[in-house]
């Protein structure tokens, strides 16, 4: 299962990159898929359990997590 973590800013994607790399999570930085509304050109793609990854990324504040092809699985507070 592919999960896409969407962020507001490129700098957030880079912070996520730093955190996931430190925590040995298997992930990739990829362009935001067209079917997902894009706030920023890049997002995090992982096949690991999304709840675990979301926990690691809570301080970076992702704005949404999508289950590739099956739509939104989690929405953050974007205020």
């Amino acid at each position: 299962m592919k999960f896409y973590f969407i962020f507001r800013r490129t700098v957030d994607v880079m912070m996520a990159d730093e955190l996931l790399s430190k925590n040995n999570v298997s992930y990739k930085i990829v362009p935001v898929p067209k079917e997902i509304s894009s706030e920023c050109g890049l997002c995090v793609l992982t096949e690991e359990p999304w709840e675990k990854v979301l926990f690691l990324l809570k301080e970076v504040k992702p704005i949404a997590v999508y289950n590739g092809g099956k739509g939104l699985v989690w929405k953050g507070d974007i205020s």
Partner: peptide, 22 residues
């Protein structure tokens, strides 16, 4: 170009800019 495209070189450029910011 950092953060403008999704390919690996663009991601690497974005990483570089982020590391300098850090």
């Amino acid at each position: 170009n950092p953060g403008r495209s999704g390919h690996r070189l663009s991601v690497e450029a974005a990483r570089l800019v982020f590391n300098c910011r850090r």
